[in-house]
Structures are given as C-alpha cells and as structure tokens.
Amino acid sequence: MNGEEFVPLSLTPLLIGVFAAVACALPGNFLLLRKQALIGDAISHVVLPGIVVAFLLTGAITALPMMLGAAGAAIVAVVMIEAIRRLGKIEPGAAMGVVFTTMFAGGVLLLEQTDTSTVHLDVEHALYGNLESLIWLDATGWSSLWDIEALAGLPAELPRMLFALIGVALFIAVFWRALKISTFDEGFARTQGIRVEALGMALVITAAVAAVAAFDAVGSIIVIAMFICPPAAARMMTNTLEGQLGWSVLFAVTSAVMGYVLAGYGPLWLGAYDAVSAAGMIATVSGVILALAAKFGPCRSRTGAPAGA
C-alpha cells in the first residue's frame, strides 16, 4: 500500500484510535488498582443522555456543547452514585448499576422522542462510533503532512483526541507521587497530607474527560475495553506501577493498530469485500491480548494474598 492511499484513508483513523486507546488506558491503570474499573463502563453509558441533551439544547451536532453535555452527565452520574450509596446504604456495585442503566435508558428514550433523522446521532453510533469515517480527504500522500492547507482539513477529532491524551498524561505526570501513594495506601497518603478524596475525584474526572473525548470519535465499546483490558493485561506482566503503565500503553497501541488493520483488511485477506467494525475489532484484539497475558503472563497469579481476597 502506498502513501497516496494510506495517508488520506487510514492514517487519521489509525492515529485517533491509538490516541483514544492510550488516553483511556493510562487512567485505567489507576482505576483498576483502586478496584474502580467499572467506572469506565458507567461513564461510557451515561455519556449518551448528556450528548442527547446537548443536541436538544443546541439543535446541532457541534463538538463543544456535546463534550460539555457528556462531561456534565458523567459528573451527574458520579454524584448520583455517591448519593445513592450514602443515602440508601447500598453497595457501590448495585448503586452504579441503578444509575448508569437508568441514565442510559433516559438517553435512549430522549433520542427516540426527538427527530434526529437529519443528523447522524443514534444509539448504534454511540455504541460503535465511526472510526472508519474519520478520513482526511485533503491529503494526497505523505507530503501532505507538511502542507498547511491540507492539514487544515484534518478531522477535528484528531487534535481533540491528542489534547485529551496530553491532558491525561500531564495529570498523571504531575500527580504521579500522590496518585501512586494514595492508590496503594490511602491511610499513609492521608498522613502525608495528600487530599485523598479530592485526588480520587480528580482521577475519575480525568477518566471521564478521556472517555468523553474518545467516545466522540470511536464509540463507547473502545472506551470500556481500553479502560480495562490493557491495564489488566499489563497487571499480569509486571509488579511495578511504572512497568504496568508502560505495558498498558504498549498493549493499547497494539490493540488499536492491529484491530484497525484487521478490521480494514482482514476480511479482504479472507476473500470478503467489506470491512468490519474497527471499534469492535479493537476491543476484540485487546481481549485476545488479555487472554494471552492471563494464560502466560509472568505475574499472572495472585501471590502473597490469601485465597479469595
């Protein structure tokens, strides 16, 4: 394949997929270690009502209100989960289940009630995204990368996802020490003067930002899969947090690239004519990586902890 075909059609979706995967996998590591892995699942469900409400208010599919709506919905969800957990003395898992299913149902209902036939907004899109359609029509080949005019035609999702990734990475880099301490030993973190609750909330919000940005581009399946699978696989490979982050980034990138390539070209190799869903394939590849790590990873078994803990 040559640059003339690759750059306009595949380069941008590939990069967006990679950025989205890494942006979700990085906070996913901490969520996994804090046993909050399903926050990603909850966030990606509640984003739908947020986006629909934003659409109802503005009447158009524009990026900023959608992002704000989604972020608002994520915050509402986190507050509601916390409120139900405290007020009703319900275990966190059940509280989460109540909130995210209800908000998702509300989103679906709103969507069905409004006339969205003129715009591209439906439940399927929210679930799978449309990674394949984020093409760069102005590009003519590798040389377009240095062509200002062509660069202006880049899909807006690419810089947005890149900023989200940089934001997430910065958050983790700046609060690295505090995050690390509070993840492993909350009591010790408190004695060190770290504001544990605020930091935990900040982590969830960072994850929500990554999820919302990624959701816009690639749909919610990738978000859930990338929050959990690469960090979980990385957990089997190493016992250090630094190593786990490194492995998870590697796994995320591998899933995104392999998933995209397999979805785009796999069916052609098998003799079929059409591509399959890239988002679904990326999630599938990350699952295969997790399965391999769970079977052969050097640190896969639970050591030192009592059975059943």
Binding site: K35, A225, I228, C229, R235, S277, G287, L290, A294, C299
Partner: peptide, 25 residues
C-alpha cells in the same frame, strides 16, 4: 489470575460486546 472481579466483569463485557459488534457488521 490476580484480577479482581470488577476488572474481570469489565473485560468480559467489553470484549464480548466488541466481538459481537464485529459479527453484526
């Protein structure tokens, strides 16, 4: 494995659902 149940739940649901979406397409 050393994964807690919540991580396993998330992994199973996202991977199976993703694979299902591939099959749908």
């Amino acid at each position: 494995t050393r994964l807690a149940e919540d991580a396993a739940i998330g992994a199973v649901l996202s991977v199976f659902f993703g694979f299902g979406v591939v099959l749908l397409t």
